[in-house]
Design a protein around this nucleic acid. Structure first.
Lengths: 266, 266
DNA sequence: TGCCGTCGTTTCACCTGGTGTAACCTCATC
DNA sequence: GATGAGGTTACACCAGGTGAAACGACGGCA
């Protein structure tokens, strides 16, 4: 993105003040003055603005500033997927710079894999963009197969059971569990998943190909990270030998970042 | 307070942008442009700033802005007391302007009444300030007695039981429940509580006096609202005849505001 | 009661920094 | 490859953000 946009000092400082109020649950002007180093008139104006914006309030009784309870309305608790996507984004960006091919991040949700982040914008190659929020099929896509292969048996059973009831032809593979189990074993020993041959028509200017690895937290698959490229540019073997290591490393970094975040939250 | 402080436009607009992003869970620049009416370069700069401040992020995959999950760190869930205090403050301010004597707002917590808001700053008379956060005794203070008198019997029993185990001499009245019950009945029929004679030494330049009424939500006492004045300025009878109506009306308004807020939250 | 120190508020003049128009670039669609 | 929509950059104007300094309110102390 290489954005040369300048930021707005007045706003940045206002946010600093807000954070300072949050940090102390209540704060006097003097304390904020000491904490932030801003001039008192400046603080007064900013706190007035925060107050009018519904983020802070000033108590009558002690003239101290507090976080407005109305502020809770602005902060709907973020989903796990949001958190993972946010931690993953810079790492995926870095990966894309090294590898040049784009990668996607997906989570299992409701019988499908949902794309929650993607670096397709970052690559100069004509792969399909507009993928965010779309879903791909568990049994057909590289990410779905990686998710299954590295999930505990109980989770796998549950997902398969769910897919048996699906009307979608792409999910009908769930009716032959034995076959699925064989592929999953192969994926586990290889360390990565490819998509079911013939699936993935969504890369338009020629067939695309993809591999996927899991983002693991203990035994749980948090998400899956894929790498895509036009099929005519390289074979799976070539890509694996060149980039599988980087892909796995990125997945591990994502897991580590999310884990670090979890600790803070508790 | 009558504050002549000016607010900061850049900050106010930045908060608007943030709210706009919150409103749509994710938003393109174009959408924010339409929603806020701000120029796009302005939006870019503000969003950049929000991003750096950890409140927003821009997804790689679709270039859309979302609320950062890091914003969660700023958000400590506000307590009920905070919410009540915030709703009550402007009403207490108004009351104080009419009546000229200050009022306090308290909630029962852990065997005592905690002062969570106060309009003592607003009154020109030399009553004790610095009350926020202090606690007063349930059986002795006007607010504590109002709390008990208008609470359901089960709650009253629980509180009395708690106070029996207190070391504080001011709580020893709990050892004669029958006497307490008689006072509570009297308070209920009068519609307001006064403090136990002799209690309330904390109004310094001469004894102070106070009456208190409950802020009711259904059968629950959310908080208690008191009105204080120097004992030599007026008798309880005079104050009751002049101001009890206003005090009760204010308590009812507080209850209504909090109830309205609750509905939004659900 | 008067003095003093602390903390909050107001004033005001400087000039930085926020602002929007206009031009430009990128990408998707047909 | 033309068209249009959405996103970004450049630039020049001047509103508006800024902090020093003065002022005011309050509490503590003796």
């Amino acid at each position: 993105m290489r954005t040369g946009v300048k930021s707005i000092r007045a706003l940045a400082r206002g946010l600093e003040v807000f954070k300072a109020v949050v940090k102390r649950r209540d704060a006097s002007l003097q304390q904020l003055y000491e904490d932030t180093g801003l001039a008192k008139p400046t603080l007064l104006r900013m706190l007035k603005t925060l107050e009018e914006g519904g983020l802070a309030r000033r108590s009558l009784g002690d003239n101290r500033y507090r976080v407005s309870s109305g502020a809770r309305l602005f902060f709907l608790p973020p989903s796990d997927a949001d958190l993972i996507a946010e931690r993953a984004a810079p790492l995926m960006d870095a990966l894309c710079r090294e590898v040049l091919w784009p990668s996607d991040l997906g989570v299992y949700s409701d019988g499908a894999i949902q794309i929650i982040e993607s670096s397709r914008y970052q690559t100069p190659f004509p792969v399909n963009r507009h993928l965010m929020g779309y879903t791909v099929h568990v049994l057909m896509s590289a990410m779905g197969r990686a998710h299954l292969a590295f999930s505990p048996p109980a989770v796998v059973r549950e997902i398969i059971e769910r897919l048996r009831q699906s009307d979608d032809p792409y999910d009908w593979g769930a009716r032959d569990p034995a076959k699925i189990m064989r592929s999953l074993a192969a994926i586990r020993s290889a360390g990565y998943a490819v998509r079911e041959p013939g699936y993935g028509g969504w890369v338009r200017p020629g067939q695309g190909d993809a591999i996927a690895v899991p983002v693991l937290q203990g035994r749980r698959v948090l998400a899956c990270l894929s790498l895509s490229w036009p099929a005519d540019a390289a074979t799976v073997k070539q890509i694996v030998s060149r980039h599988l290591g980087q892909l796995k490393a990125t997945a591990a970094e994502i897991a580590a970042k999310v884990a670090a975040e979890r600790d803070v939250g508790s």
